[in-house]
Amino acid sequence: MNTAGPMTPRPVVVRNIHIESDDVVTLDLATESEAWSFQPGQFNMLYAFGVGEVPVSMSGDPSQTDRLVHTIRSVGAVTEALCRTPLGGVVGLRGPFGTPWPMDTVRGRDLVVVAGGLGLAPLRPVLYDVLRYRSDYGRISLLAGARTPEDLLFKREVERWKQQAAIDVHLSVDRAPAGWNGQVGVVTSLLSSIDISAQTVAFVCGPEVMMRFTVRELQRRRVPAERIYLSMERNMKCAVGFCGHCQLGPSFVCKDGPIFRYEQLKSLFWLPEI
């Protein structure tokens, strides 16, 4: 650890801004020369000057080392300040932190990626990785849900994946205006439209209630607990195991997670207020 200590953010510049929807933006963060590396599923603590700091998963391509990409929904003072940072503006960054999606486990197998809402952000690096080394993997399915078609993240990119057919893409929304040709309903209902093999691994990220329904459905489809992985969310103040806020039973989500094998969590996963 450097003398600055693990709680010290460093300045990074907003190099690019993508407006994803009304309240979601993607920021590409970079410094002059630094080469970054991270693994899919990891997160950084992003600091808005004088306002505060929040954990944000990286949503970019792990093979692009000149920037770190974060997709942020404005839900409070800090995320609002981050979303409003202009091109060329500076935010603070600490990281990367946390456990990654277990890409090695999936190699040679089928993968089902289930994303609810903003949950697609920490899963996008998985899809970049899969597309880059496509022949290493079996059948890849993406099941993504959102409140409305407007809220679906990375729309053009997801559409491109669908066209290329390298990934089997299924979309669902809770409410749809006229003209929506996809499914309406919860994302879990998409599971019935895909094949699940004896080798299928599932990566799931979204609101906890959505993950509970997804796990239930995956188990009904005989995906065993040791091949289901979840990205969990808890309050985080430090990201380095000091502050105690992110505890989930014996785990600190910041350092033992955010990615967990469902088997690790199953005794707690169904308990309210744990």
């Binding site: 709680m7 000057f49 004088g50 505060g52 700091e53 103040k237 430090c238 000091f242 502050c243 105690g244």
Partner: peptide, 24 residues
Amino acid sequence: CFCSTVEDTGDLTGESAERWRRWD
């Protein structure tokens, strides 16, 4: 008991800021 929180503060000018840790 080791729980703490992190408080980020700014001043009125927006030119300086501090980060504090306090027991939680």
